[in-house]
Nucleic acid binder design. Structure first.
Length: 423
RNA sequence: GGUGAGGUGGAUGAGUGGCUGAAAUCAACGGUUUGCUAAACCGUCGUACGUCCUUAAAGAUGUACCGAGGGUUCGAAUCCCUCCCUCACCGCCA
């Protein structure tokens, strides 16, 4: 949620920035400002009337104490009149406040000035590439065939148990999941992130806090009996840990990492994208989250990007880093770098991580603040990134490392996996 | 799931209708003093939204908030209702 103050101070600039995100309804900015004006007027009216009610009530108390009953009765009449005037004001005020909130929430975050113009994924800018694309033989198989060959993921039985997109990992496939999660968490905690294991369902307030609600309501699995949402990423519970808190400046940066399964309905997805492990409803992911001093957030963003990049390098996978253009980045983000790995048999790039700076967009919703050196409370910036999402990493590991003798795992995983080969 | 107790500022905790936005203690912060450390003393020490004033910072002032929402009353942290949460015991269970 954007800060109202920013809209008030510089509505023109806000509109310009929204245009880069290809956000069409710039009229919202004006309607929000006009609602805000109305709100302030009503509040002033309400406050002054209420102040009168309060002071008169005190007088009544004093008169009663002195036994001046008649005067007290007269004052009571006065208060009654004031209160009947107050009621409609109050009602209008809450209507306006709600409208204002509803409208404000519809505005996406402003892109930072590092965001390239552009509308579609084709306009994203490749910042750099790393690793080596393997040269596979003609008989090389895509991962969905390798999975069958080595009997490590059983989609059919997963579908029988739940539905399509719920893979059932088996044997070395299951163990590889465990190994990767373990390795990723170790890699993150070594870099100073505190490990959490959060709840996998969250309440409405948490889902709202990180921006899943109301924007992506249909993308989450929902448990109506308890009004809980299955988390689409550990970002949701982990960032919400500090919801409604005021930190000390010395507490910053807060660095957190968590493993969780992620549940996504992926409503509207179809086609070859969903083949095999490319797109599933439930997958494992390790996430990193930071809450930082505002002026430092872009440095931290670079640091997180470097962190994820190093992790991919240790996995010996060919990757590239993309700076997402205004039209392709997410609603809440100010700057997003995506990581893609090259899946050699499919001959396509697969997104495995997304590292974003949200500035105050999330923290304004969650009211995550800190006291600065002057003792003033201000919002922290929040950032997060995947480090990493498993299924596409697995797809890539399988395809790129296939040999006649089996899948050769990168060295770093050997101790975690308890072996070098899937065969 | 059942029964009981309870939810007050960073923490502990007082407060059963007006003098309470909230005592006291601790923690934290600033200062004074003491040859370091420690102690003592003084001061500061909630959030949000407004209004006035100011270039701004600061300041003054109003309103709301004592788990959440609603109600009673001229007036509610305090009384009533609903919900949520915590703790204890019981039941069930990984």
């Amino acid at each position: 949620m954007l800060q109202l103050q920013l809209l008030r101070q510089n509505p023109g600039q806000v509109k310009e920035r929204l245009a880069i995100k290809h956000f069409a309804e710039t009229g919202l900015v004006d309607s929000i400002l006009s609602l805000d004006d109305q709100r302030k007027k009503l509040q002033l009216e309400f406050d002054t009337t209420q102040a009168k009610v309060n002071s008169t009530s005190k007088e009544i108390g004093a008169l009663m104490a002195k036994g001046q009953k008649e005067e007290a009765e007269a004052k009571k009449q006065e208060v009654a009149t004031l209160k009947s005037a107050l009621q409609p004001i109050n009602e209008r005020l809450s209507v306006i406040e709600k409208q204002l909130q509803d409208e404000l929430v519809k505005l996406p975050n402003l892109p930072s000035d590092k965001v390239p113009a552009g509308k579609t994924p084709a306009d994203n800018i490749v910042i750099r590439e790393g690793g080596h694309k393997p040269r596979l033989s003609k008989e090389a198989l895509p991962h969905w065939d390798l999975i069958k060959k080595y009997d490590i993921v059983d989609f059919e039985t997963g579908a029988k148990l739940t539905g399509s997109g719920f893979p059932l990992y088996k044997g070395k496939g299951a163990k590889l999941q465990r190994a990767l999660v373990q390795y990723f968490l170790d890699f993150n905690t070594k870099a100073g992130y505190t490990e959490y294991l959060p709840p996998f369902m969250v309440n409405e307030a948490s889902a709202f806090g990180t921006g899943q609600l109301p924007d992506k309501e249909g993308q989450m699995y929902y448990m109506p009996a308890d009004n809980f949402y299955m988390i689409p990423t550990a970002e949701v519970p982990v960032t919400n840990i500090y919801r409604d808190e005021i930190l000390k400046e010395t507490d910053l940066p807060v660095k957190m990492t968590a493993y969780s399964p992620c549940f996504r309905r992926e409503a509207g997805s179809f086609g070859k994208d969903v083949r095999g492990l490319n797109r599933v409803h439930q997958f494992e992911k390790v996430e990193i989250v930071q809450l930082v001093y505002p002026a430092k957030s872009y440095d931290v963003h670079e640091e997180m990007v470097a962190h994820v990049e190093k992790l991919l390098q240790t996995l010996e996978l060919p990757y590239r880093v993309l700076n997402l253009c205004g039209g392709d980045m997410s609603f809440a983000s100010a700057l997003t770098y995506d990581f893609e790995v090259y899946s050699a048999a499919q001959e396509r790039w697969l997104e495995v991580s997304s590292v974003s700076n949200f500035e105050t967009y999330q923290t304004n919703r969650m009211k995550i603040r800190f006291k600065d050196e002057k003792g003033k409370t201000q919002l922290t910036h929040s950032l997060n990134g995947s480090s990493l999402a498993l299924p596409r990493i697995v797809a890539c590991l399988l395809e790129n490392n296939q040999t006649p003798g089996g899948i050769k795992l990168p060295e770093i995983l050997h101790p975690y996996f308890g072996g070098k080969l899937i065969n």
